[in-house]
């Protein structure tokens, strides 16, 4: 409403919120940021124990099963955490939303960015750790993997906008989200290769956009295939559509936040 330069105004706010998101997550915990780095390594050690030592899962296409899972699992965990945190993020800004005029979507952007930034750092740590243990990680694949993370971030932000806005009106969203994401994880070829899915079910599994993302990520980081594909543009278009749809829902619902939050 006030004639202030829009972009500059919101950039300072986004920076402040992002810092707040990052610090609040580790504020008051003694291990602090070190935990953010230890957590992915601890998780990797557990997966090593389960898949390599207990299940003795054999290699897949000449790669160890651990590497095969890790490359796909981290982006999924990142998306899952980002959605869960962002869905409930507006509540912790209730004081601001009720009293101060600012674009509410910045809360979602800050929450999603904070989660994805930390998770991406963890992803890099896991890749380096795997390489250090002699796994054949193709680091050149990051040329594709990083843009893929950005495409994923765009889609996740769109979903987060819609979910967070709905959560203000319908408190059940938060509770439905957790089991839904759990089910979706097993329906996505993360812990198994798509080739093992029975033929008649495979089209359904492939229709999942995240299945495409996982596949593309593995191609890049395991096989080192970094050539551009038209599918990448389609993925970007899908992500942009999800973002636009989610933002539309958010903007429709956000004028009443002040009353209901």
């Amino acid at each position: 409403m006030a004639p202030t330069p829009g972009v500059a105004r919101h950039r300072a706010l986004l920076r402040n919120f992002l810092r707040r998101e990052l610090s609040v997550r580790y504020l008051g915990s003694y291990t602090g940021l070190a935990w953010a780095l230890l957590h992915p390594l601890a998780l990797l050690a557990v997966y090593y124990f389960v898949f390599t030592m207990v299940f003795r899962a054999g290699g897949y296409q000449g790669k160890s099963f651990l590497l095969f899972v890790a490359v796909a699992l981290w982006p999924w965990l990142a998306a899952q955490e980002a959605l869960q945190r962002a869905t409930v993020s507006l509540a912790s800004y209730a004081g601001l939303i009720r009293k101060v005029a600012f674009p509410h979507e910045i809360v979602i952007y800050a929450s999603v960015s904070a989660t994805l930034l930390l998770q991406f750092a963890g992803y890099l740590i896991v890749l380096v750790a795997l390489a250090a243990f002699g796994e054949p990680v193709r680091f050149a694949g990051l040329l594709i993997a990083v843009p893929l993370w950005l495409v994923m971030a765009l889609a996740v932000t769109g979903l987060a906008l819609a979910l967070a806005a709905l959560q203000v009106y319908i408190r059940d969203i938060e509770h439905i989200l957790m089991p839904t994401l759990m089910i979706l994880m097993y329906l996505t070829p993360i812990l198994y290769p798509i080739a093992l899915v029975p033929d008649e079910l495979r089209p359904w599994v492939v229709a999942n956009p995240f299945a495409w993302l996982v596949d593309r990520m593995r191609d890049a980081l395991l096989e080192g295939r970094i050539a551009f594909a038209w599918g990448d543009l389609a993925a970007l278009a899908v992500a942009a559509a999800i973002f636009a749809g989610g933002r539309w829902v958010f903007l429709r619902l956000s004028p009443q936040f002040e009353d209901l939050i």
């Binding site: 500059a8 706010l13 920076r15 402040n16």
Partner: peptide, 11 residues
């Protein structure tokens, strides 16, 4: 600092 950012001022 937060209040300033809400008003559109940088640090």
């Amino acid at each position: 600092d937060l209040a300033a950012a809400l008003l559109g001022l940088g640090p």
